[in-house]
């Protein structure tokens, strides 16, 4: 038991007892992360499929719902998230090169961007809430087909809500990695956790890259055209 206790490798980046080589260990953990991301795709996939089906069934209300998205906040948030992915990538690179200080800096900026994203999202959420665009008893909508518009907002809240939750978890993970890198846990030969957290961060980013056009863009364009 003692040789595989959770504290193993806590201070010393190193080989866990059940791996033969460092390479095997790295391969395993990268593969583990990819498999995990597949499960995440399936998780969000359920909602995307539902969105598509209803969009086909209730095209009008879906258009109507999109008009209530805040185009500018959405666009700014997309930019924020893309920047965070960039700093994340730079952070991973710094860890590969063994630049501890750069690594910590980049990751901290990433966290800031993440928080910024959530901040903007909460401004939007607040707006929707005040405007009575949260489904349920307080939902207010005066145009035609209020029910189907409410359905659109259900999707909006569920999809962006789960996405925001993922950003939050991502921030937690990055914070942990910052703490570990501060302690000097990662160097040129061992930076696997940074890479994995980076993969996760990019994934969360990509989910937004799908959410943004589906919720904010398609219908705006449609109306102006």
């Amino acid at each position: 038991m003692s040789d595989s206790s959770p504290t193993l490798a806590a201070h010393q980046p190193g080989l866990q007892h059940h791996f033969a080589t460092m390479e095997q260990q790295t391969d395993a953990s990268v593969m583990g992360m990819w498999v995990f991301l597949v499960t995440e795709i399936m998780f969000f996939g359920g909602m995307f499929v539902g969105y598509m089906i209803y969009r086909y069934m209730y095209y009008g209300p879906w258009l109507e719902g999109s008009q209530h998205m805040d185009f500018w906040w959405g666009t700014i948030n997309t930019a924020v998230l893309l920047c965070s992915s960039l700093t994340m990538a730079l952070g991973v690179r710094a860890s590969q090169l063994g630049q501890r200080r750069m690594l910590v800096t980049f990751l901290l900026i990433t966290i800031l961007f993440g928080l910024g994203f959530l901040g903007i999202k909460s401004i939007e959420y607040h707006g929707h809430w005040v405007d009575g665009q949260f489904p349920g008893a307080n939902f207010r909508f005066s145009g035609p087909n209020p029910a189907q518009v409410e359905l659109f907002f259900s999707f909006y809240w569920a999809m962006t809500g789960f996405h925001a939750l993922h950003v939050l978890i991502g921030i937690g993970l990055v914070t942990y990695v910052v703490y570990r890198s501060w302690k000097g846990a990662y160097g040129p030969d061992y930076h696997n956790p940074v890479e994995n957290v980076g993969l996760y961060w990019h994934f969360v980013d990509i989910v937004w890259i799908y959410l943004y056009p589906l919720l904010y863009l398609i219908s705006h364009k449609h109306l102006s055209g």
């Binding site: 489904p135 349920g136 029910a147 189907q148 409410e150 359905l151 259900s154 809240w157 569920a158």
Partner: peptide
Amino acid sequence: MFHLGIFDPRLGGD
């Protein structure tokens, strides 16, 4: 919990 009506037939949910 929150009346998100994804499946609610009254909102046209399937």
